[in-house]
Design a binder for these strands. Structure first.
Lengths: 198, 198
DNA sequence: GTCTATAAATCGATAGAC
DNA sequence: GTCTATCGATTTATAGAC
């Protein structure tokens, strides 16, 4: 079951360990926007500090290293994804689970177009996703549902195509001018055609 | 008409201005591999120099600034794309042109999985594509064919989805273990389903 | 074309005052 | 929680010898 009442001693797997302070939240939000525009490697702590309006030292007081900020951003991005995949996993059929997950991922990606790009496109983030256990577990659950229970090349390519299309389409220049509602509807409809006939 | 016989005084729009020297080629190849792994912002001139086995100064002698290397890499990547889109544009029907372009883009992306990722995913490269005229023109031609002559939201999302799916799927972790032939076949087949019925 | 050496700026990160 | 000030490493880039 998902965490609900916050008992103090809850290990809580790999979730954001505690309620983040306002200062921490400001750092993560600024970092998220800058990561999306310049990439993680292209974003310095000075840039983050300037965006918030404080000095580097103040940022370091919240996160002892840049890696910590990257982890926090990853947690923020993956929190939504974890919720969506959990919902999908409760569906009865695998086909229906995949549809629910795709729709949920589209919603997430469209609502916060920033995040989608970072998550699956930044080389630094990809390394974090591969190395940090909790992140990898979420991605494995996503991939499993997207593959629909199979593991053959066709299923792998389908899952890779779905994930890449969602994350990439919402930040594509051609989608930039579209409003959220239009983009969501069109993208959902288009991706449906990608799924196996039921 | 596309350039054919290389007359010495040909302005040649925005193509790689001359035959690159061997040293220049080494720089571009090393940079391409490093950009793909670490991102452009995450790749320093020292890394490029070390990969070739020379010093930074030697690299600077070939390209007066890091931007120059990025442009050269972009030219190398876009050269293939330009060829594919030119071939597609000679097709009679728009539907057929789109199929040819998608197949060609899949071939390019699979053959050189490095390049695909860089081209449409690196924030620095995206800025170059948007700002440099010659690059933007190629991308416009690609987008026009992918949209199939229309410009409505449905066509835009289709084009964005196709481009994102191709570039993203080939570098997705799930596709990493697949051999080129399998990936190409599966990806072509899957993307066909994305196209409008004819 | 490549090297050594170095300048100038910026990077991530730390110490200590308030 | 934020600041000033600073360290050491690394970055882009240049000068000049070979």
């Amino acid at each position: 079951m998902p965490s609900e009442a916050r008992s103090p001693a809850a290990p809580d797997s790999g979730a954001p360990s505690a309620a983040p302070t306002a200062a921490k939240t400001r750092v993560v939000e600024a970092a998220l926007a800058l990561f999306a525009e310049h990439g993680i490697a292209g974003t310095s702590l000075s840039m983050i500090a300037d965006a918030i309006g404080v000095t580097k030292a103040a940022v370091y007081h919240q996160y002892p290293a840049k890696d910590g900020i990257v982890v926090a951003v990853a947690e923020a991005v993956l929190a939504g994804l974890e919720q969506v995949v959990s919902a999908a996993e409760t569906e009865r059929s695998r086909a229906r689970a995949r549809e629910v997950l795709v729709d949920g991922m589209v919603d997430l990606a469209v609502e916060q177009r920033h995040m989608a790009g970072i998550l699956q496109r930044d080389p630094v983030m990809l390394r974090f996703l591969a190395e940090h256990g909790p992140f990898r577990r979420v991605m494995q659950r996503v991939n499993r549902v997207l593959m629909g229970g199979a593991a053959d090349p066709a299923a792998r390519v389908l899952a890779a195509t779905l994930a890449a299309a969602i994350a990439g389409a919402v930040v594509h220049p051609l989608a930039e001018g579209l409003d959220d509602a239009t983009l969501r509807v069109q993208l959902r409809r288009r991706l449906r055609r990608l799924l196996p006939r039921r």
